[in-house]
Simulated assay, not measured.
Amino acid sequence: MMIDFTGRKAIVTGSTAGIGRAIAEGLARAGASVVINGRNAARVNAVVREMQLAFPRSEIVGVTADLATAEGAEALFAQAPDADILVNNVGTAHMREYHGIEDIAKIPDEDWLSLFQLNVMSGVRASRHYLPQMVAKGWGRMVFVSSESAVNIPKELLDYGVTKTAQLAVSRGLAEAVAGSGVTVNAILPGPTRSEALGSLMAQQAEAQGITQQAAEQAFLTSLRPTSLIQRFATTDEVANMVVYICSDQASATTGAALRVDGGVVRFVA
């Protein structure tokens, strides 16, 4: 299968590291011009330079904008007004331990609202801007990077899980709205992945416990995701490969789907 995005413009939000960076690289490798996005100008500029060297035949530009705010979204739209491919990847979680219901009761409104603004509203605002253009052209690809936590809600990250479930609803609703237009809208559900955020957490735990990072990851899986079938963390490239495929012409019959890249963590047949 040859995937070719020559002539296509892609925007990947939150793409200076982790899964977003791997997705941006995968799209550029297949010929797309790519807009890199992040909140830190120095990081955005550094990634743009690195990717320009790695993919000299693809146009790589950067937009520094905080997509947790309406103002940041408008800054993105002003600098990157159109796109053929939009990957709503930006997101975060408030990492915490769970010792009982009192921990859930202590989650402040600010945590709930800040996660919703970044994890959900960033994609809503971007979709509102770019999706009508895709429909008008008769071709487009939109992807929401959700999580297996959307269907396997973690008690220690309840607020995060709720936002990831919301992304699935937005994704499916938009797919329904553009039925028959030539535009596809899908979501992916990564499982535990050696991304910048989770990878750094595992490295910190490994150092604190005097063990290897691989051992820390195995302990995480044993205690929190024992149903993993691959019995390891996924790599960011493994997640990105799914996104690159569903953005391709070859995936034109795949839309309205929530596609798992979770290593088999979620125990259902679908």
Rank of each mutant, 00 (worst) to 15 (best):
A83W: 10
K155P: 13
A42P: 03
L189C: 08
Y130P: 07
I246K: 02
W112F: 14
E176K: 15
V124C: 00
V90N: 09
I230H: 02
A219Q: 15
A216Y: 08
M202H: 15
V266L: 10
T13C: 01
A75K: 07
P132R: 01
D159S: 14
K164M: 00
Y130T: 06
G191R: 07
I246G: 05
Y160R: 12
L168V: 04
M95G: 13
G182A: 05
K106S: 09
A219S: 13
I23N: 07
D262S: 12
M134I: 10
V239E: 08
R128A: 00
A73Y: 03
A105L: 08
G180M: 02
P190I: 00
V266M: 09
A175W: 02
V266N: 13
N45D: 03
L221C: 14
H94E: 12
S15H: 09
A70W: 05
G7A: 11
R49H: 14
P56R: 04
T255C: 04
R49C: 08
Q231P: 11
I11D: 03
V135R: 11
V162C: 09
R125E: 01
G191V: 06
F5N: 04
A78N: 11
T254F: 04
T235E: 00
R141H: 14
R39D: 00
E110L: 04
I85A: 03
F77A: 05
H99S: 15
T64S: 00
A234K: 05
I104L: 14
S33C: 09
R267H: 09
W112A: 09
A46I: 03
K155Q: 15
S122P: 01
H99E: 11
G20Y: 05
L115Q: 15
V35W: 01
T13E: 06
V48I: 01
Q209I: 00
E176I: 10
G26C: 07
A270F: 10
V261N: 02
T254Q: 11
S171G: 12
N119S: 04
V87C: 12
T13L: 01
E102D: 13
A42F: 03
V145D: 05
E156N: 15
K106H: 14
A68C: 03
I188C: 07
A270I: 13
W139Q: 14
D159K: 04
L198S: 00
T16P: 01
T163M: 02
Q79S: 04
D262P: 14
A175Q: 00
G173A: 00
Q79T: 01
I153E: 06
G14C: 04
R225Q: 13
L157K: 15
R39H: 04
A179M: 07
S127W: 01
H94K: 15
G263I: 08
S147N: 09
T193M: 09
S252L: 04
G180I: 06
V47C: 08
T165V: 02
D159M: 07
E25I: 04
Q213C: 00
K9T: 06
I36N: 09
V170E: 00
A240T: 10
E207W: 00
R225G: 10
E71C: 05
E59S: 15
G20E: 12
A258S: 14
L174S: 01
A187C: 02
T193E: 07
K9P: 08
L27I: 09
G123M: 02
